[in-house]
């Protein structure tokens, strides 16, 4: 049995939010990668093995929707689960997230419990 080291890519333009998400991700014994916008995130995703992406919606340069759309066109990165975390809480916003290709949607600020649960549920299991 080889333990896989789970890696999450945190994308948000607010340093505070990234720091918050990072602390939860690392508490769950995941590796945290950070990016400030979609473009930086795509570069990180290409460079490292990423198991889960937590992405904000409203960001400069490349927003969350465009990021997920771009990600989903890639043969190598397209199947990575993506959780969108945004301050917008309306149904339309949720629909937009799914239309862009997100696997889940959380309203910001996501509680520690929600993120911890998500990480538990989306852990890559041991390779038998």
């Amino acid at each position: 049995m080889t333990a896989h080291h789970n890696t999450a890519l945190i994308i948000d333009d607010a340093t505070t939010v990234r720091m918050y998400h990072r602390s939860l991700v690392e508490q769950a014994d995941w590796i945290a990668l950070e990016a400030e916008n979609g473009v930086e995130a795509l570069e990180k995703a290409l460079e490292f093995e990423v198991d889960l992406i937590l992405v904000d919606v409203n960001m400069p340069v490349m927003d969350g929707y465009s990021f997920v759309k771009a990600l989903r066109t890639s043969d190598t990165l397209g199947q990575i689960p993506v959780v969108m975390i945004s301050t917008e809480a309306q149904l339309v916003d949720k629909d937009k997230a799914f239309a862009a290709g997100a696997n889940h949607y959380l309203v910001k600020p996501a509680s520690p419990a929600d993120i911890t649960h998500l990480l538990t549920l989306l852990t890559v299991g041991e390779v038998q």
């Binding site: 989903r72 066109t73 397209g78 199947q79 990575i80 993506v82 696997n103 549920l121 989306l122 890559v124």
Partner: peptide, 25 residues
């Protein structure tokens, strides 16, 4: 949701990934 190709296939693949991981968890 409506997805264009090839995004559609990749979305489906990501759903499979999510389901497998949740099941294991």
């Amino acid at each position: 949701s409506d997805q264009a190709s090839p995004a559609e296939d990749h979305c489906t693949a990501s759903v499979a990934v999510v389901l497998q991981r949740v099941a294991q968890a």
